[in-house]
Design a protein around this nucleic acid. Structure first.
Lengths: 274, 274
DNA sequence: CGCGTGTTTGAGCTGAGTCAATCCGCGTGG
DNA sequence: CCACGCGGATTGACTCAGCTCAAACACGCG
């Protein structure tokens, strides 16, 4: 079982335990040029004919069931994974009990870049829904990148972008209120869905309130309350995990940290005179 | 003025304004093999004779005066900078006024990796004391890395390590109290000084309380109070910016987020007997 | 229908923020 | 030499956003 350290119970191998799922007896051919998110992923910038080189690199794609761990922290780095469809959370765990959700990954995102430093993964990666990934053997990627400088550049850019994203997250954690963090989170999700061809205004949250809270440096109760507030402000509409953004400009004003228009003019008077 | 976008007022060019400073008329020869921190820096892992290739790559080293900006956010990326001596803070600025200190850099650290994604710098880099850096033209570095895979690996590792460090910072911001953050910060500095050959127990903080606060997601008053607390606990001794760590084990226990021994002896029993 | 997991809402508490006064070290100029 | 001023650091008093604890609710599932 070369690519990946998953055991059969986690993966959707010809599935005894889930006979209802379709079974793929022949390996799924992985062609980047057919992939809808290749423009966001590793092959970015490669001319079309080079994609076939990548095709030779990338192993047969793998299915991961909801809740299963694609990566466990401390696994040795053998493969990076490009998300093809579905979504994941990555989570960094403390020595003590607690950890934090580091990122939510969707199609086109590459998992495992943080393992390159130590050749061991530092985060768990858990599927938030049934998902598919393209395994990329790291050492073969390195070799191929030597011959295709654009590929190397692409990898460099992915890593650098991850650094920048983390910078922005730190900015959020340090400067924004709970409500503003939620706004920033929803606006960010919206942008990511747009760049994948989905609606900017309506989408489904794949993660629990608890995961959102962990990602945003809050408690889940605070997430609930802040969401409720955004709803009463008429900025979003919420039904469970289904989100509809009603007032995008207001949302974006909030995520920029503007204090204005946080409290509505004369909505309710929270003054307490018992 | 090719390498770097500094103007003459920021740099220590043949200094009219500071006639007491020594003047280097001939460019300072930059040889990685003579550099005390080459083991932490880009050339890590390169066999000795390859260092000379790097020597051809790296421009004449530059002096930056305390308070001057080596990098301004939004500058186009032409050069990375390896800190040779001294120290820097990098700072990400919001659209609105506020920003955060992203990192404190010391000898061997490489500045500007976050610019690779967009080919523009995203952070300012300000010298915390009179410092020297080795400029590394990025595009030439890319070319050289093609011929010396070890160099490419070294760059990959540097970026990946930066991602991991940010992960750990997020963990700190999300899970630790003010006091624990300070402990984590001091213990981290201590480790970095050790790996550069300095004392683990006594060192000088090069940054203001305000910078520390920004880095730790706190206010400067809180930093002061938390430091005072660490002092009364007998864990550190402080004289202005001079730090002495008196009880390293306690410091490390704190940074791990252990609740124990946070409050002095008379702690409360969290046992619940309903 | 009961059960469990995830979500929402309420009530009170607290760690860190805010505002403000003071202190300290240091360079400058008299 | 000392008085002065200034930026950074410290300390105190008060406030509040978000936390904790707790209860209720919604929903899917066997």
């Amino acid at each position: 079982m070369m690519p990946g350290q998953l055991d059969a119970t986690q993966l959707d191998l010809p599935a005894r335990s889930h006979p209802a799922m379709p079974i793929h007896l022949k390996p799924l051919v992985t062609l980047c040029e057919d992939c809808r998110v290749s423009g966001l992923c590793l092959p970015t910038g490669l001319p079309v004919h080079d994609h076939s080189c990548l095709g030779a690199l990338i192993g047969p794609r793998m299915r991961v069931r909801k809740g299963a761990a694609l990566i466990n922290a401390n696994d040795p780095l053998t493969t990076l994974y490009a998300v093809r469809c579905g979504s994941f959370k990555t989570r960094l765990n403390n020595v003590e009990g607690q950890g934090v959700v580091i990122n939510f990954c969707m199609p086109g995102d590459v998992l495992g870049l943080d393992a390159i430093a130590t050749e061991r993964h530092v985060c768990d990666a858990i599927a938030l829904e049934d998902s598919e990934v393209c395994p990329v053997p790291y050492h073969r990627l390195q070799a191929l990148a030597r011959d295709f400088p654009v590929l190397q550049q692409s990898l460099n850019r992915l890593m650098s972008r991850e650094i920048v994203r983390e910078h922005e997250r730190v900015l959020m954690l340090c400067n924004l209120t709970a409500e503003q963090r939620l706004a920033s989170f929803l606006a960010g999700l919206s942008r990511r869905y747009v760049s994948r061809g989905y609606s900017a205004h309506g989408f489904m949250l794949r993660m629990s309130r608890e995961d959102m809270a962990s990602y945003l440096g809050l408690r889940l109760e605070t997430v609930c309350r802040s969401l409720a507030r955004l709803r009463t402000l008429g900025i979003v509409s919420l039904h469970g995990r289904l989100v509809e953004i009603l007032d995008m400009p207001a949302l974006m004003a909030l995520e920029q940290g503007s204090d204005e228009l946080k409290r509505k003019p004369a909505q309710k008077t929270p003054c307490s005179t018992p």
